[in-house]
Design a protein around this nucleic acid. Structure first.
Lengths: 330, 330
DNA sequence: GTTGAACGTGGAAGCGGTGCCACGCCCCGA
DNA sequence: TCGGGGCGTGGCACCGCTTCCACGTTCAAC
């Protein structure tokens, strides 16, 4: 591999000049710049990243901070991010965080250790304290599916999504609409289920429906728990005629529970999910679609713009109901 | 952050000695070693990776070389890999490769640029030429779902899997068994569909069944293409009574095509898939299960062992048929 | 003609490690 | 007693880049 010294010698200039050309600094005569660029091209030179990091005291890389790779929606977003970042040519490394402890360790290693140029956070809220550290360390940060203090983000309005799903059921005559969601004291601070519930309550209130507390169920994320909660709903004196699940995975548990009770979907009970994950079309699940892949792509775009020192705005993506076979008019 | 010089001063030794302690070299008096380790602990020192890479001329990182993140099976393996690597504390970066061109660029950047300590390749065959370069560059390499020349790997026997799936159908009385798979001149050289077809043919031959060529269909990967191929099968003079799809995604296309013809699964036509992806249980698809996540974990284990200079053996994982609701006796 | 600011440039001092070389010491054999 | 071979160690050159300082040059202003 050629080094900066080879380039400098070959172009008949000093290493400082080559470095200035490399980094697009001013103060280089156009002719010199052209000559250096020609030599770089000819020698197929590319700077040694370790040396650059050492000298600059920071890394060129981009770090992706991601919770639960097993979650389908996080996964879809991640795919978008990776695709969007592909063209940047930067090293991209992955930090996966499944617990508060791992999160804190990951952040410590980012701020004090790797010092990447950019950080892209998916779905994981970070404290103001942490955000201050990141700003301090001059790490360009972007949030995807999470609003982070003082940095740009790509978000989807979960409250609006909850409203949309609920209105979809109300518009079809349902009045006894239940909600099945996550526990709301998430250690990692996820709020999507909570926000979707708020949207749900808001839509009901707007429709003038007095909501029975017994229609709002929450439990650990997953199919099994949703299954159990749904059985509870079905044994109520007045079981709901429709269920809004805070995620598609939970909706699958809801579907199972209804069917295992000998009831039919959507004839006896309607079900709407959220996320419109890849599985949804196979199962015919009506769901609230949010642009998962695109949110990742856009997040990558924001980060790359930030790294080019451009000013960027927050992006908010629209949600919509995808109608399939699990909701019927009452 | 403390540097090696701080440690050396604090411990009253030279930087060389600290470096030797750090790297577990011999030739350090036990007392000195203990003293240095104590200081390292006290100062919470950890070496600067950029400096180390620069000096050693190679990176500590591990690179993951992965095709098509969108593929469910690659994804599941990747999750296993990441989980398995989590404990190593090494930087892990991702190179995603969707075309021959990207593959070659990625390899060039690995061998000449980043020079990671380890490389874990998922499902992507590499030429002997490339393998020689990797050996030359002393990059510890491990294959997951691909056998790579001269390095350890975790593989699953696709031929055996094809046999298993086919025998499963034969054992239930089917004689007219069709195969729906991928095109076999994959630019990136994937051979799994081809191998599964070989297993299929072998099982038929062993059962003394003369195979009609018209029962073997191949097309681009994906649901739509499998759908189309299946319609062709169903219009044959003697349509098959069972279909073996080279992957679950293709099996979904097969299911759709059969049902859209007004036929029932499994009463009219049986279907068996391959991979047992997350979706399969939801749809009730009978499929050949291969331990995707585990293969990734084991691959990570092999790589970490190689990086500790341990000798390791190839691992071959077993496949098995998971019976659900899409296969019935003839 | 002198001054000095702005410009373009070369070069050296780091960045924080690694690894080699040289040095002093101790112990053993001649 | 002396020489020589380990052993344990300190220190310095070096990895390839950035960055800053200093040095000509040019040119406008006075």
């Amino acid at each position: 591999m050629a080094t900066i010294l080879d380039v400098a010698r070959e172009a008949g200039v000093g290493v400082g000049t080559v470095s200035r050309v490399l980094n697009g600094r001013e103060r280089v005569a156009p002719g010199t710049r052209a000559r250096v660029l020609a030599v770089i091209e000819r020698l197929d030179y590319s700077p040694n990243l370790s040396a650059r990091s050492l000298s600059r005291g920071r890394t060129e890389a981009i770090c992706l901070l991601v919770p639960y790779l097993t979650s389908a929606s996080v996964n879809a977003r991640l795919q978008g991010v990776v695709e969007g970042l592909q063209s940047s040519g930067r090293e991209t490394f992955l930090q996966i965080v499944d617990s508060v402890d791992q999160r804190d360790r990951a952040i410590a290693s980012i701020v004090e250790g790797a010092k990447p140029a950019g950080l892209l956070v998916i779905s994981l809220p970070l404290s103001d304290n942490v955000m201050a550290c990141l700003r301090e360390a001059e790490i360009a940060t972007v949030g995807v599916d999470v609003a982070l203090d003082g940095v740009p983000s790509v978000t989807v309005d979960d409250i609006e999504g909850g409203r949309l799903a609920t209105r979809f059921l109300l518009d079809r005559g349902h009045r006894a609409v239940a909600f099945v969601g996550d526990l709301e004291d998430q250690p990692l601070g996820f709020r999507s289920s909570q926000n979707r519930r708020l949207g749900y309550l808001d839509a009901l209130a707007n429709a003038g429906i007095e909501q029975a507390d017994e229609y709002v169920k929450s439990g650990p994320f997953g199919r099994a728990s949703a299954h159990r909660l749904t059985r509870e709903l079905l044994t109520l004196a007045h079981p709901p005629t429709a269920v809004f699940a805070a995620s598609d995975v939970q909706a699958f548990g809801v579907l199972e529970a209804i069917r295992s009770d000998g009831l039919r979907v959507p004839e006896d009970v309607s079900v709407i999910g959220y996320d419109d994950i890849e599985l949804a079309p196979y199962v015919g699940l009506t769901s609230v679609h949010q642009p998962l892949f695109e949110s990742g792509q856009m997040g990558a775009g924001l980060l790359m713009a930030r790294l080019r020192q451009e000013e960027v705005e927050n992006v908010s993506l629209a949600v919509s109901v995808v109608e399939r076979d699990t909701v019927a008019p009452l």
